[in-house]
Design a protein around this nucleic acid. Structure first.
Length: 194
DNA sequence: AGCCAGATATGCT
DNA sequence: GCATATCTGGCTT
Protein backbone atom coordinates (compact mmCIF):
# COMPACT_ATOMS: atom_id res chain seq x y z
CA UNK A 1 0.00 0.00 0.00
CA UNK A 2 1.75 3.10 -1.18
CA UNK A 3 -0.60 5.81 -0.05
CA UNK A 4 -2.30 4.59 3.06
CA UNK A 5 -5.35 6.54 4.22
CA UNK A 6 -5.26 8.53 7.41
CA UNK A 7 -6.34 6.51 10.44
CA UNK A 8 -10.07 6.55 11.02
CA UNK A 9 -11.87 5.47 14.16
CA UNK A 10 -13.11 1.90 14.15
CA UNK A 11 -16.85 1.72 13.68
CA UNK A 12 -19.27 -0.80 15.11
CA UNK A 13 -18.71 -3.31 12.31
CA UNK A 14 -15.35 -4.01 13.94
CA UNK A 15 -17.28 -5.74 16.74
CA UNK A 16 -19.46 -7.98 14.57
CA UNK A 17 -17.38 -11.14 14.95
CA UNK A 18 -17.40 -13.58 17.86
CA UNK A 19 -15.62 -12.68 21.09
CA UNK A 20 -12.32 -14.57 20.61
CA UNK A 21 -11.95 -13.13 17.09
CA UNK A 22 -12.61 -9.58 18.28
CA UNK A 23 -10.36 -10.05 21.31
CA UNK A 24 -7.48 -11.01 19.01
CA UNK A 25 -8.23 -8.25 16.52
CA UNK A 26 -8.17 -5.61 19.25
CA UNK A 27 -4.51 -6.33 20.06
CA UNK A 28 -2.51 -3.45 18.60
CA UNK A 29 -5.39 -1.01 18.32
CA UNK A 30 -5.29 2.25 20.24
CA UNK A 31 -7.93 2.92 22.89
CA UNK A 32 -8.40 6.38 24.37
CA UNK A 33 -10.83 7.74 26.95
CA UNK A 34 -10.91 11.52 27.03
CA UNK A 35 -7.58 11.48 25.22
CA UNK A 36 -5.81 9.17 27.68
CA UNK A 37 -4.77 5.61 26.90
CA UNK A 38 -2.57 3.78 24.41
CA UNK A 39 -2.05 0.53 22.55
CA UNK A 40 -4.17 -2.44 23.61
CA UNK A 41 -1.77 -5.27 24.50
CA UNK A 42 -3.95 -7.75 26.41
CA UNK A 43 -7.60 -8.87 26.12
CA UNK A 44 -9.88 -11.70 27.16
CA UNK A 45 -13.00 -13.07 25.43
CA UNK A 46 -16.27 -14.01 27.13
CA UNK A 47 -19.51 -15.25 25.61
CA UNK A 48 -22.96 -16.48 26.47
CA UNK A 49 -22.06 -20.21 26.49
CA UNK A 50 -19.05 -19.61 28.73
CA UNK A 51 -19.50 -20.45 32.44
CA UNK A 52 -16.91 -17.78 33.32
CA UNK A 53 -18.94 -15.05 31.63
CA UNK A 54 -21.22 -12.61 33.39
CA UNK A 55 -23.70 -13.40 30.60
CA UNK A 56 -23.79 -17.14 31.28
CA UNK A 57 -26.96 -17.04 33.35
CA UNK A 58 -28.77 -14.68 31.00
CA UNK A 59 -29.57 -10.96 31.14
CA UNK A 60 -29.60 -9.11 34.47
CA UNK A 61 -29.54 -5.44 35.42
CA UNK A 62 -25.75 -5.46 35.70
CA UNK A 63 -24.91 -7.26 32.47
CA UNK A 64 -27.65 -5.63 30.36
CA UNK A 65 -25.12 -3.90 28.06
CA UNK A 66 -23.74 -7.34 27.09
CA UNK A 67 -27.14 -8.05 25.56
CA UNK A 68 -27.43 -4.60 23.97
CA UNK A 69 -25.94 -3.31 20.71
CA UNK A 70 -22.37 -4.28 19.80
CA UNK A 71 -19.67 -1.64 19.89
CA UNK A 72 -20.77 -0.40 23.31
CA UNK A 73 -19.02 -0.50 26.67
CA UNK A 74 -19.85 -2.85 29.52
CA UNK A 75 -18.31 -1.66 32.78
CA UNK A 76 -18.68 -3.55 36.04
CA UNK A 77 -17.22 -3.33 39.52
CA UNK A 78 -14.87 -6.06 40.59
CA UNK A 79 -14.25 -7.16 44.16
CA UNK A 80 -16.10 -4.14 45.41
CA UNK A 81 -13.42 -1.64 44.43
CA UNK A 82 -12.13 -1.89 40.87
CA UNK A 83 -13.85 -0.98 37.62
CA UNK A 84 -13.30 -3.20 34.58
CA UNK A 85 -13.96 -2.24 30.95
CA UNK A 86 -15.42 -4.62 28.37
CA UNK A 87 -16.33 -4.03 24.73
CA UNK A 88 -19.56 -5.71 23.61
CA UNK A 89 -19.28 -7.75 20.40
CA UNK A 90 -20.78 -10.52 18.21
CA UNK A 91 -23.64 -9.36 15.99
CA UNK A 92 -25.31 -12.79 15.95
CA UNK A 93 -25.00 -14.02 19.54
CA UNK A 94 -25.91 -11.54 22.29
CA UNK A 95 -24.01 -11.83 25.56
CA UNK A 96 -20.47 -11.59 24.16
CA UNK A 97 -17.78 -9.13 25.23
CA UNK A 98 -14.03 -8.56 25.38
CA UNK A 99 -12.34 -7.53 28.62
CA UNK A 100 -9.52 -5.03 28.10
CA UNK A 101 -6.76 -6.21 30.46
CA UNK A 102 -3.73 -4.09 29.62
CA UNK A 103 -2.61 -1.09 27.56
CA UNK A 104 0.81 0.25 26.66
CA UNK A 105 0.41 3.88 27.77
CA UNK A 106 1.08 6.46 25.06
CA UNK A 107 -1.39 9.33 25.39
CA UNK A 108 -2.43 11.46 28.33
CA UNK A 109 0.34 10.18 30.57
CA UNK A 110 0.05 13.09 32.97
CA UNK A 111 -3.67 12.61 33.49
CA UNK A 112 -3.25 8.87 33.97
CA UNK A 113 -0.41 9.29 36.44
CA UNK A 114 -2.45 11.85 38.34
CA UNK A 115 -5.41 9.46 38.61
CA UNK A 116 -3.27 6.56 39.79
CA UNK A 117 -0.70 8.47 41.79
CA UNK A 118 2.73 8.78 40.24
CA UNK A 119 3.60 5.33 39.09
CA UNK A 120 6.05 3.46 36.90
CA UNK A 121 4.90 3.33 33.29
CA UNK A 122 5.17 -0.45 33.45
CA UNK A 123 2.23 -0.73 35.89
CA UNK A 124 0.17 2.27 34.87
CA UNK A 125 -2.34 0.29 32.75
CA UNK A 126 -1.24 -3.32 33.45
CA UNK A 127 -4.40 -5.05 34.65
CA UNK A 128 -8.10 -4.33 34.11
CA UNK A 129 -8.56 -2.41 37.36
CA UNK A 130 -5.43 -0.31 36.95
CA UNK A 131 -6.30 0.41 33.34
CA UNK A 132 -9.80 1.58 34.21
CA UNK A 133 -8.52 3.84 36.95
CA UNK A 134 -5.78 5.31 34.73
CA UNK A 135 -8.19 6.03 31.87
CA UNK A 136 -10.88 7.37 34.20
CA UNK A 137 -13.37 4.62 33.34
CA UNK A 138 -16.25 4.27 35.81
CA UNK A 139 -19.61 2.57 36.01
CA UNK A 140 -21.18 5.74 34.64
CA UNK A 141 -19.76 4.74 31.24
CA UNK A 142 -21.43 1.35 31.02
CA UNK A 143 -23.65 1.13 27.95
CA UNK A 144 -22.02 4.05 26.15
CA UNK A 145 -21.13 3.68 22.45
CA UNK A 146 -17.42 3.30 21.69
CA UNK A 147 -17.49 5.38 18.51
CA UNK A 148 -18.32 8.62 20.32
CA UNK A 149 -16.74 10.68 23.10
CA UNK A 150 -15.32 10.04 25.61
CA UNK A 151 -14.14 6.95 23.72
CA UNK A 152 -11.82 6.76 20.72
CA UNK A 153 -10.67 3.51 19.15
CA UNK A 154 -8.06 3.70 16.41
CA UNK A 155 -7.10 0.80 14.14
CA UNK A 156 -3.67 -0.74 14.12
CA UNK A 157 -1.21 -0.50 11.27
CA UNK A 158 -0.90 -2.70 8.22
CA UNK A 159 0.81 -5.76 9.63
CA UNK A 160 -0.88 -8.15 12.03
CA UNK A 161 1.04 -7.96 15.30
CA UNK A 162 2.42 -11.18 16.83
CA UNK A 163 -0.21 -12.42 19.28
CA UNK A 164 0.22 -14.94 22.07
CA UNK A 165 -2.67 -16.95 23.53
CA UNK A 166 -3.32 -18.57 26.88
CA UNK A 167 -5.88 -19.32 29.57
CA UNK A 168 -7.76 -16.46 31.18
CA UNK A 169 -6.83 -15.07 34.58
CA UNK A 170 -8.63 -15.10 37.90
CA UNK A 171 -11.47 -17.46 36.99
CA UNK A 172 -13.05 -20.32 38.89
CA UNK A 173 -14.93 -21.74 35.89
CA UNK A 174 -13.93 -22.05 32.26
CA UNK A 175 -10.33 -22.14 33.43
CA UNK A 176 -9.05 -24.16 30.48
CA UNK A 177 -10.52 -22.03 27.67
CA UNK A 178 -7.57 -20.27 25.94
CA UNK A 179 -9.28 -16.94 25.38
CA UNK A 180 -6.59 -14.60 26.72
CA UNK A 181 -4.70 -12.72 24.00
CA UNK A 182 -1.52 -10.67 24.31
CA UNK A 183 0.91 -8.70 22.19
CA UNK A 184 3.99 -10.93 22.03
CA UNK A 185 6.93 -9.51 23.94
CA UNK A 186 5.08 -6.51 25.35
CA UNK A 187 6.47 -5.11 28.59
CA UNK A 188 3.02 -3.88 29.60
CA UNK A 189 1.13 -7.15 30.11
CA UNK A 190 -0.61 -7.70 33.44
CA UNK A 191 1.15 -11.05 33.69
CA UNK A 192 3.44 -12.98 31.37
CA UNK A 193 2.20 -15.70 29.03
CA UNK A 194 3.80 -19.11 29.23
C1' DA B 1 7.40 -16.57 44.78
C1' DG B 2 3.12 -16.68 47.59
C1' DC B 3 -0.53 -15.11 51.00
C1' DC B 4 -3.98 -12.08 52.55
C1' DA B 5 -6.91 -7.96 53.49
C1' DG B 6 -9.72 -4.62 51.51
C1' DA B 7 -14.87 -3.11 50.32
C1' DT B 8 -19.28 -3.50 47.71
C1' DA B 9 -22.55 -4.62 43.94
C1' DT B 10 -24.63 -8.56 42.49
C1' DG B 11 -27.23 -12.67 42.28
C1' DC B 12 -28.78 -16.86 44.28
C1' DT B 13 -30.90 -19.36 48.44
C1' DG C 1 -29.55 -12.95 54.15
C1' DC C 2 -24.97 -14.47 52.42
C1' DA C 3 -21.34 -16.18 49.41
C1' DT C 4 -19.08 -14.65 45.58
C1' DA C 5 -16.55 -11.90 42.35
C1' DT C 6 -13.15 -11.10 34.82
C1' DC C 7 -8.52 -7.50 41.23
C1' DT C 8 -4.81 -4.79 43.48
C1' DG C 9 -1.41 -3.52 46.82
C1' DG C 10 1.24 -4.56 50.60
C1' DC C 11 3.56 -7.71 53.32
C1' DT C 12 5.97 -12.21 54.11
C1' DT C 13 9.07 -16.21 52.55
Amino acid sequence: MLDSPAPVPLDRTAFAADAPTVARALIGTTLLVDGAGGVVVETEAYDREDPASHAFNGPTARNAPMFGPIGHAYVYRSYGLHWCLNLVCDATRPGSAVLIRAIAPTEGLEAMRARRGLEALRLLCAGPGRLAQALGVTGAMTGLPLDAPPFRLLPRGEADPPVVVGPRIGLTRGVATPWRFGLAGSAFLSRPFR
